[in-house]
Design a protein around this nucleic acid. Structure first.
Length: 415
RNA sequence: GUGGGCGUAGCUCAGCUGGUAGAGCACAAGGUUGUGGCCCUUGUGGCCGCGGGUUCAAGCCCCGUCGCUCACCCCA
């Protein structure tokens, strides 16, 4: 048996890279347009960080983290999401002391031990942003605008932006009690999962797919918001309307991580499999303090790279390729090509070849595949005459070039 | 953690009620073509996922196992 990759862990192959690069480049440009700067944080942290931020009783922490002891006996976890590490860095480097509002973005792999399926992997990539330091509703609007803009720039349509408010410590408890009282009456009629969730995470019962139609008259968080939370939510909504960002309020939208407060949102796509949330995020006003920093509000989102890439039209993306392919026919020509390759590359001209000296027929196929705009044909016959042939792959025009000053000549012609 | 589907050439797959393995694409050589792309000929390439069982005989049937995949769950 040959060694394989770990279950649920994918290679991102060369043919996928144009889409990945395009997504990353589009995101970077957009984040800069909105005043964010990149931060790179470790892909592993002390386990305690995630237990404290994500919530000890969440599924992620209870059964999905890659946790192990390092050689010093410390408990280490491969990051299951990006926010905790960024917030830890924010606190550790006392960024709160530098600006009233700190805006960071990140991209990289995350790890969760889940059963793999369409759009869900054990190592997966996220791109995310965090805005720390202000609880002004315009910050929420800005975050939602980024999400909207990013997918617009990527040319992806058919997405729905769903928004909700989860309230804060002042009002969420009250709602939770009201919801449990409501659910208790129906408990016997609910599916087994929901009966379990009633205890562990009652708010999750509301987005159960089996029982979805039973909760039309359930209490809704939005009705229980305290005055400040209500005002905040209304301000976010009016901001979205003012900017013309389409959204819908989904009162049943909840989050799987404990740190979320107030504004919560998801960008969902229909009919791409069960894992149809493409991006999601929300406000987390208590998180910085939880991690040991001063009381600081925050809001952010993360998008799933694989899920987003699957929605992109990869055919429209052109990979970057060398400008010249050298078709060296025969061993003599292969030998001769070595210094040409070196000199051209040294001059910053991309050149490729495959050194096997095979027939012109097969070499031209490779030249096509390489995507190079020109091919330099080094045939036995031409070499004898001190020449090579430069072929423009698009116009099929050919020109003979003397071997004496071939590098300079190519540099000139390939500019 | 729980279910369903599927494992045959590098890729996509065919393979009849069990009879000793096939196609297309790709790759390589040649022919044709004004020096490739179309077309034609030829060639390389398979412990039919792995292990056991039934049988004169297993890619096919049975059991186990590993892997992939989709869904539940959960989430980006």
């Amino acid at each position: 048996m040959t060694v394989q990759s770990i279950k649920g862990v994918k290679d991102v192959l060369p043919e996928d890279m144009p889409a990945w690069h395009h997504l990353e480049a589009t995101a970077r440009k957009l984040f800069v347009d909105y005043g964010f700067t990149e931060i790179r944080v470790p892909i592993f942290e002390y386990t305690e960080l995630f237990a404290r931020s994500i919530g000890a009783s969440t599924d992620i922490v209870e059964k999905e983290m890659y946790t192990f002891e390092d050689r010093d006996g410390r408990k280490i976890t491969l990051r299951p999401e990006g926010t905790a590490g960024v917030v830890r860095a924010f606190v550790e480097h006392k960024m709160y002391a530098q600006n009233a509002l700190t805006k960071l973005y990140y991209m990289g792999p995350m790890f969760r031990h889940e059963r793999p399926q369409k759009g869900r992997f054990r190592q997966f990539y996220q791109i995310g942003v965090e805005a720390l330091g202000m609880d002004h509703p315009h910050v929420d609007v800005e975050i939602l605008a980024i999400v909207h803009q990013l997918y617009a720039r990527l040319g992806i349509t058919g997405l729905a932006l769903q928004v909700n408010s989860l309230g804060d410590s002042a009002c969420r408890g009250k709602y939770r009690d009201a919801l449990k009282a409501y659910l208790k009456k129906k408990l016997a009629t609910l599916c087994a999962d929901c009966q379990r969730r009633y205890e562990t995470n009652p708010m999750r019962v509301l987005d159960c797919k089996v029982d979805a139609d039973k909760f039309g008259d359930s209490p809704v968080m939005l009705d229980y918001l305290c005055d400040p939370c209500k005002a905040h939510f209304h301000a976010v909504e009016s901001g979205l309307r003012k900017l013309g960002i389409p959204y819908e309020v989904n009162p049943r939208l909840v989050r799987g991580l404990d740190y979320y407060t107030r504004t919560t949102f998801e960008l969902v796509m229909g009919h791409v499999g069960a894992q149809n949330t493409v991006a999601a995020g929300g406000r987390y006003d208590g998180l910085v303090e939880e991690i040991g920093g001063p009381p600081t509000s925050g809001i952010g989102f993360a998008l799933g790279v694989e899920r987003t890439v699957s929605l992109m039209d990869a055919d429209t993306l052109i990979p970057s390729r060398p400008v010249l392919y050298i078709a060296a026919l025969g061993e003599e020509a292969v030998k001769l090509s070595l210094p040409f390759l070196h000199e051209l590359r040294r001059a910053g001209i991309g050149v490729d070849t495959d050194y096997n000296g095979a027939s012109l027929k097969s070499q031209m196929k490779k030249a096509d595949k390489s995507g190079a705009g020109h091919t330099l044909i080094l045939g036995e016959q031409e070499i004898k005459n001190g020449k090579a042939v430069l072929r423009d792959m698009r116009t099929k025009e050919q020109a003979e070039i003397g071997l004496g000053n071939i590098v300079d000549e190519l540099k000139k012609r390939l500019r």
